[in-house]
């Protein structure tokens, strides 16, 4: 198995070997895409102009 140079790994395999990077991505992606974007939508909501 000497022919397998650890630096030659596919990026996806490297990602799978790195639970810490997965943890960071797993927290950041939904927090930004779902939560923070949702909060921004609420903040940007205009007041009603009731005729």
């Amino acid at each position: 198995m000497s022919e397998r140079d650890p630096d030659n790994k596919h990026p996806l395999e490297k990602l799978m070997d790195n639970p810490w990077l997965l943890l960071v991505l797993g927290v950041v992606i939904p927090t930004v895409s779902y939560t923070v974007w949702g909060w921004i939508e609420l903040l940007a909501l205009p007041p009603a102009t009731l005729p």
């Binding site: 909501l45 007041p47 009603a48 009731l50």
Partner: peptide
């Protein structure tokens, strides 16, 4: 589609 509104204003409307 939605807007912020107070309970009082909406009730009056």
């Amino acid at each position: 589609e939605s807007y912020k509104v107070s309970v009082q204003e909406y009730g009056q409307r």
